[in-house]
Design a binder for these strands. Structure first.
Lengths: 300, 300
DNA sequence: GCTCCTGTTTGTCCTGGACAAAACCGTTGT
DNA sequence: ACAACGGTTTTGTCCAGGACAAACAGGAGC
């Protein structure tokens, strides 16, 4: 049986590398050079797709394609950074408090993960749970993802289960009267966890949150802010969002958004962002709480 | 101040029309013809983007681009189908049971919507709630979306709030031992509601559901099925998913998936699908329950 | 009515060229 | 030593125009 082949559109979807980039790499670096099907169209092998995904991951960590392509076959895997386990104890038991949760994910044991999280939530209370468990855990998962020690579907399972937990927690909160905050993300940014964490904190502090899900076209964000009479629009950018696009997107949104509406921007994707005019950066979750207090001080 | 302009990449993101299509339409039909910026690159106006979104919507309903482009400026809006309110009563009160919920969404009153849904859930029980409230409501929202009477952000709000409700309901269920079902969708298919409805029903019947979120690369779906020892992989395709791609995707997935794993496929996007070998179609939610029973009969 | 066939429509892929923005790097000045 | 600066290389994205297969529409024949 012939091996399965993937055409360029499928590879674009599965790797996140645009058709233009795939063709350009082939032209420039000589990789990947796919076979051609009967119509002369590119037909990538599963192996090539896997390698492209690895390259994409390394690039997201700052490596440059020109260097990566020059490397021989198996040298790539060694480039992944090594985060975890700085100090490995003498015991097999979890040395760090979050390890039990990560282990549950690695074992694909959703039930154990949920149970562990529920336990923590009950013990810590919602605010500390978000700040001390969900946020660091998300970071750890992100690191594991970066160094390739976590499969895509393991990360998906983590994300899905964690989203459920947070949404459930939010549902139990009373809806206050503070500023009305519209939470969403821009197209091409599907990550929801950061938004949910912020929403939890803001809702806990009595703000009125309007969750609009992810990937709202910019024009729609402006319309929604109008329709909901929002005081604040809060966006989240993950590390995966191409840095070079953030500024442009924000400028454009600021331009079409009513001036009276605050624009808050957080997430790992904007950590070291040159602050544009009229945009409030939220480098950490705590900053969101400060920003809320500041807003309230200015709007008595 | 100059009007905001959008480059071709932004338009692709916001409309879902590929760069190739945008350029081809310009070549063939003479619309849209954007201005050019200083570098000779296309710069679309907000007006053009809106019109493109309208055209995209009409095409998803079966209209053909050649015809649409030939129409003059404002004739397009009249093409939208008119679903709702076949028999308008003499009263202003909701004539159909679901109207109060839809009205709440239209008023952007999330709290009222959630309250109404909770009420129904309590009264109907989870299974009937899914079958008699969530499913028809989703359909009604879809129709409103098609005929353009619902804004994008209104649909997003509905989706987000409904997802929360269902996830909350699922969380309360005991996790049974029946077949292990892996629920997800393929890349380019971000819609989650259908999956959640199926998951609710299957979980109610005691199946062990593994929710992996949306947009899993095909190779990863196969890996996840392996790692989780899944008996069944269930996919969902919305109407928005291009029909002509469904068959190819399913063939490819079937090819890389272990033969012992069932492949179930549901959603509005596969309503009239020529059934491929080794793929179980689920044209309705009820069919999912039947399929579960059939599976159990075959695996004593 | 139905099926089969043919011409048209439509989306996607191809090549190869151009260029701007970002990243890098060596130099100079403090 | 280090910071600022300017030139060079790298990299992604855009463009034009050509080709073609798959989907569709519509008519001829049964």
């Amino acid at each position: 049986m012939a091996e399965p082949k993937f055409n360029i559109a499928v590879v674009e979807r599965d790797t996140g590398l645009s058709k233009d980039v795939l063709r350009m790499w082939e032209r420039r670096y000589g990789f990947p050079v796919p076979e051609r099907d009967g119509n002369g169209e590119r037909a990538y092998s599963a192996e090539q797709v896997d390698r492209l995904r690895l390259i994409k991951r390394l690039m997201d960590q700052g490596h440059r394609p020109g260097k990566l392509m020059a490397l021989p076959g198996d040298a790539l895997a060694d480039l992944a950074p090594r985060h975890g386990r700085e100090a490995v104890g003498q015991t097999d038991a979890p040395v760090e408090p979050l390890d039990d949760l990560i282990d549950a994910i690695r074992r694909h044991d959703g039930a154990a993960y949920q149970q562990g999280m529920q336990h923590r939530l009950a013990r810590q209370g919602l605010m500390r749970f978000v700040l001390d468990t969900v946020a660091p855990l998300t970071r750890r998962i992100g690191e594991a993802w970066e160094d390739g020690s976590l499969e895509v579907f393991e990360e998906h399972l983590f994300t899905e289960l964690t989203k459920r937990l947070l949404r459930q927690a939010i549902a139990g909160l009373p809806t206050g009267g503070g500023p009305r905050v519209l939470l969403t993300s821009v197209p091409e940014e599907p990550h929801m966890l950061g938004l949910l964490m912020v929403e939890t904190l803001l809702a806990l502090e009595g703000a009125e949150c309007v969750p609009l899900g992810t990937e709202m076209p910019l024009l729609e964000i402006a319309r929604a802010a109008e329709a909901h009479q929002a005081d604040i629009v809060a966006l989240s950018f993950s590390v995966a969002f191409p840095q070079r696009h953030v500024t442009g997107v924000l400028q454009q949104l600021r331009q079409i958004l009513a001036p009276r509406v605050d624009l808050w921007v957080g997430g790992m994707g904007v950590r070291r962002l040159a602050v544009a005019a009229g945009v409030v950066p939220l480098p950490t979750l705590e900053a969101a709480l400060s920003a809320l207090n500041a807003w309230r001080a200015e709007h008595p």
